[in-house]
Each structure stands twice: as structure tokens, then as C-alpha cells.
């Protein structure tokens, strides 16, 4: 299991290759990567991500442990960045390793749903029309009910 909360970028290729190596009992690796999406109307200049040091790492650890036991994973990884990021930059990634693809996909979705509304991160968008905190969406909260 690998958990990292960092301000620095990560190398998707290196992290994925390392995560996928050394398994002899795994048939499926799923990775998901989230990017800063430029705005459709307002021009997004940057996204600032704040977090709660200490609680963030604990929450991510607990989520990954849950996913491992619930989906019988061989391994799980979560990287989430904080600080100022510009459109196109990678914000976060999850990776899951399982014997079969369904568990690997489901576990990645499970981790994403929990990261959205249970990990103490807050996003603030800086655009040409000003700065505003990103509001949580009801559907993100509702998404948890399927687990």
C-alpha cells in the first residue's frame, strides 16, 4: 500500500510501472488519474488545493485499507497533491491491483467516491472572473450510498 499527500508533481509512467511490477498473484491493475480541467466559460487560471495535514494521511490510509479488504486487493495506491495547480496538471491518482478486473475497477471507483467527499481537501478555483471555493455536489455524497 502506498499513500502520498504531496505538493510536487508525480510521474504517472514511473508510478504506474512500479505499482504494476512484482505481483505474481494479480491479474488486473487499474489506474485512474485526475487532472485540473480548464473551465468551459470562465478561463481557469489555477486551482488551489488546501488540506488538513495529519487527518488527510489518516483518512487516505483508512480508505485504502477498506478497499483492500473489501475487494480482496493485492495492493492499492493513492497520491493526492495540494497547493497551486494549473489546467492540465495531474491532481491525483489511484491504482488498484486485484486477481480479476471487476474488483480492480470497483475498488478504483470506491476510492474515487470516498476521496471526493471524505478526504479533507478543499479546492479553490482562480479564474479571470475571480476566485471561488468549489462547492461539493449532492451527487458526490449520493455516490457513497452504493457502497
Amino acid at each position: 500500500m502506498y499513500i502520498s499527500v504531496q505538493d510536487q508533481p508525480f510521474d504517472l509512467g514511473t508510478v504506474s510501472a512500479e505499482f504494476a511490477s512484482g505481483h505474481t498473484n494479480t491479474g488486473a491493475i487499474v489506474t485512474f488519474t485526475g487532472l485540473v480541467r480548464g473551465g468551459a466559460e470562465d478561463r481557469l487560471e489555477a486551482m488551489e488545493i488546501e488540506h488538513y495535514p495529519g487527518m488527510t494521511e489518516a483518512a487516505l490510509n483508512a480508505m485504502a485499507e477498506n478497499a483492500i479488504s473489501r475487494f480482496s486487493l493485492g495492493d492499492a495506491l493513492i497520491i493526492h497533491r495540494y497547493g497551486r495547480l494549473v489546467p492540465g496538471e495531474m491532481i491525483m491518482m489511484v491504482a488498484t491491483a486485484a486477481r480479476h478486473r471487476k474488483d480492480a475497477f470497483d475498488a478504483a471507483e470506491f476510492l474515487m467516491d470516498y476521496l471526493k467527499s471524505r478526504a479533507p481537501f478543499w479546492k479553490r478555483e482562480i479564474s479571470d472572473s475571480g476566485a471561488s471555493w468549489v462547492a461539493s455536489k449532492d451527487e458526490d455524497e449520493d455516490a457513497l450510498s452504493r457502497w
Binding site: 485526475g34 488538513y52 495529519g54 487527518m55 489518516a58 493526492h80 491532481i91 491525483m92 474515487m112 476521496l115 471526493k116 467527499s117 471524505r118 478526504a119 479533507p120 481537501f121 478543499w122 479546492k123 471555493w133 468549489v134 462547492a135 461539493s136 455524497e141
Partner: peptide, 29 residues
């Protein structure tokens, strides 16, 4: 609200608590 870095409720007890945090709904991912 989080009490000692665990998500909690507004009616939760603060007995023995050292740290309480208030914040809007989280927007990770």
C-alpha cells in the same frame, strides 16, 4: 466537523478532545 482528526457530528462529546476542526464539505479527488 472533525474531532481529533476524525469526522464527527455537532452533537458529539468533546470529553478528552484535543483538536476540533471546522470546514465546508470536502472536495477532493
Amino acid at each position: 466537523v472533525a474531532v481529533d482528526q476524525e469526522l464527527s457530528d455537532f452533537d458529539a462529546s468533546l470529553a478528552g478532545a484535543r483538536e476540533v476542526a471546522f470546514f465546508p464539505p470536502m472536495t477532493g479527488g
